[in-house]
Write a protein that binds this DNA or RNA. Sequence first.
DNA 1: CAGGATCCACAGCGATACTG
DNA 2: CAGTATCGCTGTGGATCCTG
Lengths: 113, 113
Amino acid sequence: METKEQKNIAECPVAYALNLIGGKWHFQIIWALYKKPVQRYNELKRRVDGITNMMLSQSLKELEQYGLVTRIQYPEIPPRVEYSLTEEGRALTPIISELARWGVKQMAARKDS
Amino acid sequence: METKEQKNIAECPVAYALNLIGGKWHFQIIWALYKKPVQRYNELKRRVDGITNMMLSQSLKELEQYGLVTRIQYPEIPPRVEYSLTEEGRALTPIISELARWGVKQMAARKDS
DNA sequence: CAGGATCCACAGCGATACTG
DNA sequence: CAGTATCGCTGTGGATCCTG
């Protein structure tokens, strides 16, 4: 894996950031966890429209690895797992918010193509 | 192309925004044009490290279509083409800046893996 | 100088089915 | 309930060469 891509990720903070959270669902998951700070797996799945089990669990695992999401598993039957944002994850929400605001403007500005 | 994806893009402003500028080079191009507001093609190419002709011209075309970048072509020999950001493109730069700041923190926070 | 065309590789994403 | 495994597509990005 010694492509130029790696160099970009190493040198450009934006590329680095997007490498962490540029996935298709990451933003939406973070956003969902922002709107409701503690959620269980299936709850999250219901809120993030259209996501599959695979993408959700995979994304959550990545976000947890990156230190953006906290996973707490309770040793009960039936199993209960709660997800929430870390400080670093929460630090991202204003940015998402701004991006959303920008997106809304764009959508309005060019309803046509 | 009637996938659920389209629904996301239509409904979620963030997904919409990322669909516009989530490409691999878009951010970097916008950033380069922010740092030096008017640039010619080859100048831009030199500044965006590692980009190929294909990706640069393709990205610029997209950004122009979306109304984020202005392209001015001078009918001279040799050809001269200058690129700059529109208002809407410039509106994005604070967001990129924040994202960069966040990225820097992340890089520092987890130098290890 | 400023691009376009072609071909190709690969990773991201997805559907479905299965497990502790 | 909270996930995993497998398999395959498809779209994005890349190298290289060509043109007005």
